[in-house]
Design a protein around this nucleic acid. Structure first.
Length: 876
RNA sequence: GGGCGCGUAGCUCAGUGGGAGAGCGCUCGCCUCACACGCGAGAGGUCGCUGGUUCGAACCCAGCCGCGCCCACCA
C-alpha cells in the first residue's frame, strides 16, 4: 500500500461518510458504469424503469426507500455481470407543476389567462429547466446507480410521439371517445379529475329535509339533502318500487319548490326505503347516483353550478352568480319563507375531495374525453392470474384483480395547459373531427381551417407508457430490443391502480409484452409517531437531512432494515445502526488491511475456526442473496449485519488476532478473502463505504461497483466445524458469565480442567482460563498468547474443582470468593431441577410420547439425561 | 357496507405448531494496541382478551376489544 494511503488508513479511526460519498460517486460516473450499451437480450439483461418522480418533486422518504430497494437489486445484478439499465426520468405532473408556476405568477400579480397559453407553457418550461433537475441531484446523494447519461421526461420530443401514437391507436380502435358525462370537477385545479384522484373524507354537514308537494293532492314528499342549492337542478323524485308507502304515487308528479318545475315520481331500486321518508330528490346534473338514475329513466339533466363553482342562469335570477355554498344558504332561507323546510340536523358523511388541490369535488356533467378500459383490462387480468406478472406480497394480487374486473371508463382529458395537448382537431366549417399524430394543415373533408382541442391528457395517460416510451417506442430502437420488458417494478400501493395497472395494460397492447415480470409492493414508512408522513401535516422526515447527518449508506441500510410487509414507523435507531455498521466495517477493515501479510486473497483454512468462519461466510452469502432476490430486504440486512458484527468481528477477529499480528500467511489470505466477499455482498446495500474500503484492498483491480458479486461456494460449508466452534463460543460465554457472577477480577486467569474433549484453543484465551489436563500440564492459555502478564502465582495447579461450567471444572483459586461460588452453584441447581421436572413431566405424559414425532420425543429424552447428569455432578 | 392488515421486552419491530428474538434504551464491569459510533456480562415479556382444535398454541380456528389502510353511489 502507498505509504500516504496507509497513513490515512491508520489515522482515520472513524468513518466519515460526508468526506467519502461525493468523491466516490464522481468516480462511478467517471467510470461510466451506470450507462449500458444497448445490446443483448432482455431475458439476460437487467433493467428497471424508475417510477418517475414529479419534476416539481423533492426527494422524500418514499423515494428514498423505493430508491434504496431498486438500487440494491440493480447493483447486485450489475455486479453479476448482467447488462444493466436503470432508467432515469421525471414526470411532467400536469396539475402539480402548473400550480407551482401559477403560484409564482400570482406573486407577480399575473394570471395565466392574462399571459396566454403559449407564454404560460413557455414559463413552465423555463421553470422546469431551472428547477426540474433538483430531484435528480438528490437521487445522486442517495447513491442511486441510475443512467444519468440518458434522462427522460414525459414531455420530451420522442415521448410526445409515443403518447400521440397511443392516443391515435386507441381512438381508431374506438376505445377513446368524447362524451357528456358526470365527472369529478375539481374547482381547485379547474379541471376534471379521474376517480382515482378523489379521496373521501368525513365531513359534518347539515342535512335539510324539504317538503315537495305532490301535484293534485295535499300530500308532500319529504326529501333530504346536504346540498340544498342542488334542488334547483332536480328533475325527479324517486322512491323504491317495493315501498308500500309510496306505491300509489308512481307516475304522479311533485312540484319543485322555489322553481315550480313538475318532477315525475319514478321508482328506482337505488332508493333506500330506510333512509328518511324513502323519497329521494333526483339531481342528474350534480350527483353521480342521480345521474345514473336519470339515465335509467330518461330524465332531464340540468346543470345549475358552473365550472367556476358559481350558480349559472339555470339556477334562476335569484341565485345566478352566487357561489354554490352561498346559494345553498339562500335556498334554505327561501325554503323557510315558503314553509317548505321541515327539518335540519347535523349530519356526518363522507364527501369527495380532490387529492390534487384539496378542493371539495363538484360533480357535474361535462364534455370530456374518455377511454374505455374493459378490452385493455382483459389481457392485463390474464397475465396477473397466470403470474406472468408476479405481484409481491401476494395479497395485492387480489386487490389488483378485483379492481381490474370492475374497471370503469377513464376520464383522460384535463382542463389544463401543461401537458400533452390532446391530438384532436376540429373543423368548425364542416364539424369534422380529426385525430392525428401530427398537426394537420387543414380539414381533410372541406379544406377549412382547424382548431386543436384545448384540453390536455391526464398525466397518468403518459406515465402509463413509461417502461417502453423511455426506450424509444414507437421506434424499434436497440434500447427497446435490449431492455424491454424490464425486470421488476417497486411501487407504493397507492399507485397500484393509478399507474401499475395502466402500464400493464398499455405494455401488452402496444409494446407486445408485459412491462415487467415482478411487481414488489413495498411498505409505507410512517412518521415516528405513526401518522403518515406528509408535508401538510409537517410530519415529513427529510431523507437529505438524514444523509447529511448519518451518510447515505446509513439511511439506505436503515430504510431497508425497517422495511417490512406491514407499514412501519420511521426508526432513527435503524439508521443509527447503519451508521454504526459503516463505522464498524471501516474499523474491522483497518485491522485487517493494516496487519495482513502480503498474500493473495484466498480461503486458506488451517484451524477449525477458519473453517467455521468460511462456512458461516458462504452460508450468509447464500442467505442474504436469496433474501434480496425475494425482496426481503429487512432480513437480508439483518443477516448480513449479524454475520459481520457478531461472527466476524466479535468472534473470529478476536480469535485470530494473535495469528494476524504474527503475520501468518494463511490467516491473512483468509481474512482478505472474507473482506472482499463481505464488501461485495454489502455493496448493493451500502455502496459508498464498501467502495471506499475496497479502494485499500490489495486485491482491487477496479471499482467494487463492477466487481463480481459473490456466489456462495458450497464446498466451504462445514457443519462439523460450525458445531465445534458454536460449542466453543457457548462455553466461552458461560465461563465469562460465571466469572462475572462470582466477581472474579478481570486480570485473574482461572485454572480449569476440561472433562472429555478439549475445547478449542480460543475458549481459554477469550474466557481467561488456563486449561490443565489430568497431568497438570498447560494445554492452552498464556503460552500461546502475548496477552498481559500473569497476575499472581495463585493459579490452580490441578487443585480441587470448585465449580462446573458445562463440561469444564473450575479449579480452586485464591481470588475466587467461595460464597459467591456457592450461591452460583445453588442457583444453577435450582435451574436444573426445574428443567428436569419440566422434561420429566413431558415424558411422563403418555399422549406426548405416543403422538409427538419420534425425534421430538428423543430430543426431550436426551435433554433429560443431560440435565440429570449435570445436577448429579453439582450435588456431590 | 365490503376487503386487507396489525396488536410480542420500556420503544421500534422479527418470529407463525415443539423450550420467547433483534436493534435501541436500561443495569453492572471494562479507555483490552480495529472501532467507546466500542468490548464483556445482565435485568426486562400471563406473545390484546375469551373460548376451541392439538400430546403440545405467540403461531391454527371462532368470537370479542383496540388500531391502521384500501375500495364502495346511501341522499
Amino acid at each position: 500500500m502507498d505509504p500516504a494511503r496507509r497513513k490515512k488508513l491508520e489515522g482515520t479511526t472513524r468513518y466519515e461518510p460526508a468526506e467519502v460519498e461525493a468523491r466516490i460517486f464522481a468516480e462511478w460516473i467517471e467510470g461510466g458504469y451506470f450507462h449500458p450499451e444497448a445490446g443483448g437480450d432482455p431475458a439476460e439483461n437487467y433493467s428497471v424503469a424508475i417510477p418517475p418522480p414529479n419534476v416539481t418533486g423533492v426527494l422524500h422518504m418514499g423515494h428514498a426507500l423505493n430508491g434504496s430497494m431498486q438500487d440494491a437489486l440493480v447493483r447486485m445484478n450489475r455486479m453479476r455481470g448482467r447488462n444493466t439499465l436503470w432508467t432515469l426520468g421525471t414526470d411532467h405532473a400536469g396539475i402539480a407543476t402548473q400550480a407551482v408556476v401559477e403560484k409564482g405568477l400570482a406573486e407577480e400579480g399575473v394570471s395565466r389567462h392574462e399571459l396566454g397559453r403559449e407564454a404560460f407553457v413557455e414559463r413552465v418550461w423555463a421553470w422546469k429547466e431551472e428547477y426540474g433537475s433538483r430531484i435528480v441531484e438528490q437521487y445522486k446523494r442517495l447513491g442511486a446507480s441510475l443512467d444519468y447519461e440518458n434522462e427522460r421526461f414525459t414531455l420530451d420530443e420522442g415521448y410526445v410521439r409515443a403518447v400521440y401514437r397511443v392516443f391515435k391507436l386507441l381512438y381508431d380502435k374506438g376505445y377513446i371517445y368524447r362524451d357528456n358525462y358526470m365527472v369529478n370537477w375539481d374547482p381547485g385545479s379547474h379541471s376534471a379529475i379521474s376517480d382515482l384522484e378523489v379521496e373521501n373524507r368525513e365531513v359534518e354537514d347539515t342535512l335539510y329535509s324539504i317538503d315537495y308537494p305532490v301535484e293534485g293532492s295535499d300530500r308532500v314528499l319529504t326529501v333530504a339533502t346536504v346540498r340544498p342549492e342542488t334542488m334547483l337542478a332536480d328533475t325527479a323524485v324517486a322512491v323504491n318500487p317495493d315501498d308500500a308507502r309510496h306505491a300509489d304515487l308512481s307516475g304522479k308528479h311533485c312540484v319543485l319548490p322555489l322553481v315550480g318545475r313538475r318532477l315525475p315520481i319514478v321508482a328506482d331500486e337505488h332508493v333506500d326505503p330506510e333512509f328518511g321518508t324513502g323519497a329521494l330528490k333526483v339531481t342528474p346534473g350534480h350527483d353521480p347516483n342521480d345521474f345514473e338514475i336519470g339515465r335509467r329513466h330518461g330524465l332531464e339533466e340540468i346543470g345549475v353550478i358552473g365550472p367556476d363553482g358559481r350558480m349559472n342562469e339555470e339556477a334562476g335570477e335569484r341565485f345566478a352568480g352566487m357561489a354554490a355554498a352561498d346559494a345553498g344558504e339562500a335556498v334554505v332561507v327561501a325554503l323557510r319563507e315558503e314553509g317548505r323546510l321541515r327539518d335540519e340536523e347535523p349530519y356526518v358523511h363522507s364527501v369527495p375531495f380532490s387529492e390534487r388541490s384539496g378542493a371539495r369535488i363538484e360533480p357535474l356533467i361535462s364534455l370530456q374525453w374518455f377511454c374505455r378500459m374493459d378490452e385493455l383490462a382483459a389481457p392485463a387480468i390474464d397475465v396477473v392470474e397466470r403470474e406472468e406478472v408476479r405481484i409481491t406480497p401476494p395479497q395485492w394480487k387480489r386487490v389488483y384483480l378485483d379492481w381490474m374486473r370492475e374497471i370503469r371508463p377513464w376520464c383522460i382529458s384535463r382542463q389544463l395547459w401543461w401537458g400533452h395537448r390532446i391530438p384532436v382537431w376540429y373543423c368548425d366549417a364542416c364539424e369534422e373531427t380529426i385525430v392525428a399524430e401530427e398537426a394537420p394543415e387543414r380539414c381533410g373533408a372541406c379544406g377549412g381551417p382547424l382548431r386543436q382541442e384545448e384540453d390536455v391528457l391526464d398525466t397518468w395517460f403518459s406515465s402509463a407508457l413509461w417502461p417502453f416510451a423511455t426506450l424509444g417506442w414507437p421506434e424499434d430502437t436497440p434500447e427497446l430490443r435490449a431492455f424491454y420488458p424490464t425486470s421488476f417494478l417497486t411501487t407504493a400501493r397507492e399507485i397500484l391502480f393509478l399507474w401499475v395497472a395502466r402500464m400493464i395494460m398499455t405494455g401488452i397492447e402496444f409494446a407486445g409484452d408485459v412491462p415487467f415480470r415482478d411487481v414488489y409492493v413495498h411498505s409505507v414508512i410512517q412518521a415516528r409517531d405513526g401518522r403518515r408522513m406528509s408535508k401538510s401535516l409537517g410530519t415529513g422526515i427529510d431523507p437529505l437531512e438524514e444523509i447529511d447527518e448519518h451518510g447515505a449508506d446509513a439511511l439506505r441500510f436503515g430504510l431497508l432494515a425497517m422495511s417490512s410487509t406491514q407499514d412501519v414507523r420511521f426508526s432513527d435507531a435503524k439508521v443509527q445502526q447503519g451508521a454504526d455498521l459503516a463505522n464498524k466495517l471501516w474499523n474491522a477493515s483497518r485491522l485487517i488491511l493494516l496487519n495482513v501479510a502480503e498474500v493473495e486473497a484466498a480461503p486458506r483454512p488451517v484451524s477449525v475456526e477458519d473453517r467455521w468462519l468460511l462456512s458461516r461466510l458462504e452460508a450468509t452469502i447464500a442467505s442474504v442473496t436469496a433474501k434480496l432476490e425475494e425482496y426481503d430486504f429487512a432480513h437480508a440486512t439483518q443477516e448480513a449485519y449479524a454475520f459481520f458484527w457478531s461472527e466476524l468481528c466479535d468472534w473470529y477477529l478476536e480469535i485470530v488476532k494473535p495469528r494476524l499480528y504474527e503475520g501468518e500467511a494463511e490467516v491473512s489470505a483468509t481474512l482478505l478473502w472474507t473482506l472482499e466477499r463481505i464488501l461485495a455482498l454489502l455493496h448493493p446495500i451500502m455502496p459508498f463505504v464498501s467502495e471506499e474500503i475496497w479502494s485499500y484492498h490489495p486485491a482491487r483491480q477496479g471499482h467494487l461497483a463492477v466487481h463480481s458479486f459473490p456466489e456462495a461456494d458450497e464446498s466451504l460449508l462445514d457443519p462439523a466445524a460450525e458445531r465445534e466452534v458454536r460449542d466453543g463460543i457457548e462455553l466461552t460465554g458461560r465461563l465469562r458469565a460465571w466469572r462475572d457472577l462470582v466477581e472474579a477480577p478481570a486480570a485473574t486467569v482461572l485454572s480449569a480442567r476440561a472433562e472429555g474433549a478439549a475445547p478449542p484453543e480460543f475458549v481459554g484465551r477469550l474466557a481467561r482460563c488456563e486449561f490443565v489436563d489430568a497431568n497438570a500440564r498447560l494445554r492452552s492459555g498464556r503460552e500461546e498468547s502475548d496477552m498481559d502478564a500473569p497476575s499472581a502465582p495463585s493459579r490452580g495447579d490441578g487443585g480441587d474443582p470448585i465449580a462446573a461450567v458445562g463440561s469444564v471444572k473450575i479449579l480452586a483459586s485464591a481470588e475466587i470468593d467461595a460464597e459467591a461460588v456457592a450461591a452460583r452453584l445453588e442457583a444453577r441447581r435450582k435451574e436444573l431441577r426445574s428443567e428436569v421436572a419440566r422434561a420429566e413431566g413431558k415424558l411422563g405424559n403418555e399422549k406426548f410420547v405416543d403422538r409427538a414425532p419420534a425425534e421430538v420425543v428423543e430430543e426431550e429424552r436426551q435433554k433429560l439425561v443431560r440435565y440429570r447428569a449435570e445436577l448429579e455432578e453439582l450435588s456431590e
